[in-house]
Nucleic acid binder design. Sequence first.
DNA 1: TCTGGGGTCCTAGGACCC
DNA 2: TCTGGGGTCCTAGGACCC
Length: 422
Amino acid sequence: MSKVFALVDCNNFYASCERVFNPKLEGKPIVILSNNDGVIISRSNEAKALGIKMGVPVFKNATLLEKHNVNIFSSNYALYGDLSQRVMNTLVLISPDIEIYSIDEAFIDISDLYEKNFSEFGIHIKQTIYKWVGIPVSVGIASTKTLSKVANHYAKKHLENNGVFEMTSPDLVEKILKQTPVDEVWGVGRKYSKFLYKNQIKTAFDLRNAKDSWVRKNMSVVGLRTVKELRGEPCYTLDSMPVGKKAILTSRSYGKPLEKYDDVLQATSNFVSSCAEKLRKQKSCARAITVFVMTNKFSKGPQYINGKTIKFPVASNDTSEMIHYAAIALKMIFRNAYKYKKSGVIVNDLVPEENIQTSLWDTIDREKNKKLMKSVDKLNDLMGRNKVKFAVQGLDRKWKMKQEQLSPCYTTNWNDILEIKI
DNA sequence: TCTGGGGTCCTAGGACCC
DNA sequence: TCTGGGGTCCTAGGACCC
């Protein structure tokens, strides 16, 4: 029984989100900036047409942006996250066999679709999401996930297909793979595409015909899977059960460089708090915490980058305990006389909350602390993020990031709700 | 002035053991 | 020249994704 996958991918997702509640932006160039308003991470088609590149610092695009009056937004993850959920909820209603792959895309297994009219189904998906949520999507349909990615890419580039492209017939697959540059294949990144080009493998079709042993040797089993998928042999199935994360990371570049230990500690303990919250949300505890700091790699000054991992005596998701160990780690790596630009916290070695191994020598009243954390989470849920926090997290937020072009949180903040003037 | 953040998986090589 | 061999576990680093 052969498989059929549909990949539903939102077009220029962040830029499209900004348009949903601000129709004046329709047809106008839009770019979205990363945290700290650093680089461009999403562009509307109009912005792409102007030659504005992805991942390029804003200041390097300043003239272009100004000249064409491009609408610039700081990233607004509260808005994007909420709209993403609406898109996914809609998809689940249409077809429950779904894997949410990222904030803006999902795979659907449509192998058993009634009457096998895949293209028509794709159009139905596209129209429904646009009508209900206001986000335009593209749909790629093929017999493996990797091929459905190729099909989706093709749909986006060739608008005559109305954003839906079915690539199920072998002849068509061959034809499209021949026109697909190898670097556009899912799983082929910068390093591999350079390597493949050097070896005369330039299209997805060339890669499909590469020798298994050669691929295995040079691109590991992961590369071999990609090749097999290009041949129509599914190696990846639909992963519909969201599993708990294996590691959780919170890090930020600071709005301005910090030099004092206390300031870096303040920033870092806020990241710990965020990691701890995420742990409690997925009902996990961590057995270890890593703290890292770094200077600005783009500046000319002295550079320093270091990290330290500390294992907990007992797996934990308690903010105060985690801050305690994070501070120890930070103390070990912190050096004076550097201008720190970024720090971060990774919690790893995660275990389910209910089966943590306690220690004989444990002196902490874990039940009491658990209740405390529960109350803190409840209050913050009710009254807004970080309304209740630990003193070390500070109030002055010297590290806070730049967000000068933030759009309103139309859907997640009552104060930002859309007003309609008649 | 100004260069993001959050993940996964695989492999090579070292430590350790018998 | 050559210094035992083989297994397992862990970690760091590299590739990729969005």
